[in-house]
């Protein structure tokens, strides 16, 4: 049971990679990238979790509970990573919108004026 979050995270990453490799629509590619990112965030949070853990807030925490606090660093990493993910997803989607305006399609096989 302890490894369950890691299995889920790995599945999410693999699903995302599958989407990036085999889906044809640019919007779906963005969703794939988002899936990988979710998987990685889950992985990071799961890394810092302790069984029956409490929030890592030191103020007024009884000393007996100190070793049951979840690790704060992965949570900080995840928060940063979510913010970065939001920025990249927004940027990718806005590029996709402008590509749709110029090319009239979002099929990845047809958005290939830059080749050779």
């Amino acid at each position: 049971m302890g490894n369950f979050p890691f299995v889920v995270a790995m599945l999410l990453v693999i699903l995302g990679l599958y989407t990036l490799l085999f889906k044809r629509n640019l919007i779906k590619l963005v969703i794939g990238a988002s899936l990988i990112e979710t998987g990685v965030n889950l992985f990071l949070v799961a890394l810092g979790y302790r069984t029956a853990g409490i929030a890592p807030i030191y103020t007024y925490a009884p000393p007996a509970l100190a070793d049951r606090m979840v690790l704060p660093t992965p949570q900080a990493l995840t928060l940063t990573s979510i913010v970065i993910g939001l920025a990249t997803t927004a940027l990718l989607l806005s590029f996709a919108v402008v590509i749709h305006r110029h090319y009239g399609t979002l099929d990845v096989r047809e958005v290939k004026e830059l080749k050779g």
Binding site: L21, V108, K115
Partner: peptide, 17 residues
């Protein structure tokens, strides 16, 4: 060499993997 530079994004990902 030209055929490998398809310009298709899925292929870019495939090369990384």
């Amino acid at each position: 060499a030209r055929a490998l530079h398809t310009g298709i994004l899925s292929d870019y990902f495939a090369w990384i993997i």
